[in-house]
Amino acid sequence: MAETAYFERLDGAGRFRATPRLSGAWRTDEQHIAPALGLLAHVVEQDRDARRDDGLVIGRLSWDILGTLPVGEVETDVEVLRAGRTIELVQSRMSSGGRDAVLLRAWLMRPGDTAAVAGTALDPIPGPDELEPWDPTTVWPGGFIESAQLRRAQEEPGRAVFWVRSDVALLDGEPVGGLAHAARLFDIANGMTVRQDPREVAFPNLDLTAHLFAEPTGDWLGFDTRVSFGDRGLGLTASVLHDERGPIGTMSQILTVRPM
Rank of each mutant, 00 (worst) to 15 (best):
T4R: 01
F7R: 00
E8C: 00
R9W: 08
L10I: 02
A13F: 09
F16Y: 15
F16D: 02
S23H: 13
R27F: 12
R27G: 12
T28G: 02
T28L: 05
Q31Y: 01
I33D: 02
L39V: 07
R48I: 04
R52M: 15
L56W: 01
R60T: 14
S62P: 13
L69Y: 09
L69G: 10
V80G: 02
I87L: 12
L89E: 06
G98T: 08
A101R: 08
L104G: 12
L104H: 03
R105F: 10
L108T: 02
M109V: 11
R110W: 13
P111L: 01
A121Y: 01
D123N: 11
L131K: 13
W134K: 06
T137F: 12
T138C: 05
W140H: 14
P141G: 02
E146S: 09
R151Y: 00
R151G: 13
R152T: 13
E155G: 10
E156V: 07
G158L: 08
A160I: 07
V168C: 06
A169Y: 10
L170N: 04
G173K: 12
E174Y: 12
G177T: 13
H181W: 09
L185D: 07
I188Y: 09
T193M: 13
V194Y: 07
R199S: 10
A202L: 06
A202F: 03
L208N: 08
T209C: 08
F213D: 14
E215M: 14
P216C: 12
P216T: 13
T217I: 14
G218V: 00
D219N: 10
W220T: 05
L221F: 11
L221W: 04
T225Q: 10
G233Q: 00
L234H: 07
G235M: 12
I248M: 02
G249K: 04
T250S: 15
M251D: 02
Q253V: 15
L255Q: 07
L255E: 14
T256A: 09
P259N: 10
